[in-house]
Design a binder for these strands. Sequence first.
DNA 1: CCAAAAGTGTTAAAATTACACCCATGC
DNA 2: GCATGGGTGTAATTTTAACACTTTTGG
Lengths: 235, 235
Amino acid sequence: MDFGSANVTERNQLPPALAISTVIFALRSDGGRQALWMPLVRRIREPHLGKWALPGGPLSGRESLQDAAARNLNETTGLAPRYLEQLYAFGGLDRAATQRLVSIVYWALVQPGEADLARESENVKWFPADALPDLAFDHNTIVEYALWRLRNKMEYGPIAFSFLGESFTLAQVRGVYEAVLGRELDPANFRRHLRATPDIVPTDTFQQGGRHRPPRLYRYTGAASPDPGFPRRTP
Amino acid sequence: MDFGSANVTERNQLPPALAISTVIFALRSDGGRQALWMPLVRRIREPHLGKWALPGGPLSGRESLQDAAARNLNETTGLAPRYLEQLYAFGGLDRAATQRLVSIVYWALVQPGEADLARESENVKWFPADALPDLAFDHNTIVEYALWRLRNKMEYGPIAFSFLGESFTLAQVRGVYEAVLGRELDPANFRRHLRATPDIVPTDTFQQGGRHRPPRLYRYTGAASPDPGFPRRTP
DNA sequence: CCAAAAGTGTTAAAATTACACCCATGC
DNA sequence: GCATGGGTGTAATTTTAACACTTTTGG
């Protein structure tokens, strides 16, 4: 179907189109300091042809919302998300010029593994989250909101571990917080905080190869639960 | 259109239907103690004919999501919501037997004014939130989630005032907290907490007619903002 | 030895909690 | 007066924050 030529009257009578998009965050060490990066895809059709946009697509009839988001994310980054949660349903009347469009947006945290950042192409590219270009549709607004949620949730939820691998040093965790929140944290107090969390358990191994005293490695044993895992059954 | 006879194959090829529903909360003094109540509507067609359900309906092409929720709420309770925020988009595959259904659910707080609770009918009835009947679809799960969000947000957001009128006593605010959180709070400490909030300003008037010392009335001057009002532009 | 991060100790300030007590009103 | 909720005072406890200091490694 091509709605491109629908006039306003016709458009108002069409049922709203339903799409799933995902805001994907990863941490990348940007020469010493860590920073948030996200992959975007280039639009290959009108509207907004050529602009960068959030990965997404129409909702197929055979997938749950979350499954659709996860598949989309995998197709874009080649990664399985460590964390995936619904962000918001955007449904303003003027989001797309040609058709009434409702987008259910998810946000995801992935760990920067080996092949991931390499999987760039003409139409998939990673950008620093604080210096995005002018995106298609209302995607700049959506990313802002996702950033707000990420920072917010970082302050109380066990989210930082989703950026990291199986084992990690406490300083790495602190690095995640500092990168996301954009401010420095006292190493001593931060350490005590983490040590008081039952879900963070010390291992017997230490990270070797650093140029200073080898830090102990830890593991996170809790669930990477979105919310208190709440919308349990149906969504 | 009637999808009632669609078989599974046909169903999977239909585009998902999109509906808006709203979880509406009000506080009702239940003989001394206050308690949460919510209005439900009786289903007048299959599926789930006769069961109670959240008020809602299909998304028309000419309304924003929030407008649709507000209209729906008004049609049900006759009230304008003091607080209205998106709750979640539910899109599990098996939510409705006949058709793939995606519901964008809002939650609302209304103040129990004059005509509201009177507006009951054969098909609209108020229930105590902690003793709901078996609802249609997955609506029991949705209400549970809404209750969780309400209690959660009550602990940090300025939400309680949306249950109350223009001016109120500090004890009334405490009553809201106690009813929603389900536990008693120290009057002295609670009072100090509120007094330290700049948005709560004392008035010159006192509530008369009580059988004890007349308490001072206060006013809330802040915005009843969902989140930090964030999804600003588009949704 | 020196630099630098890992890790421990200590103390002041601030927020939370518990509870004793006085005040003002209707009956 | 007296019962009752409005309103104030205060001290113990816990949490947060700031920063000095010791330990262990690589060079």
